[in-house]
Amino acid sequence: MTNNATGSIKIVALTPLGDAAAGVCDGDFCAVPEHHTQAVVNKKLDEDLV
């Protein structure tokens, strides 16, 4: 993976790809997607923390 090369960016309408429920920060609120929440609960259960 190489370091950046600054250049002008042509703005086009982007085609969205990927999981729409991926973790993202909007403003200063960083929601935890449900699948991560469940994974954390499962991990705690595995570790007998719940």
Binding site: I9, T15, G18, D19, G23
Partner: peptide, 9 residues
């Protein structure tokens, strides 16, 4: 320049 991917995929 054409695909938008949002979040920690």
């Amino acid at each position: 320049g054409k695909y938008g991917v949002s979040g920690a995929q």
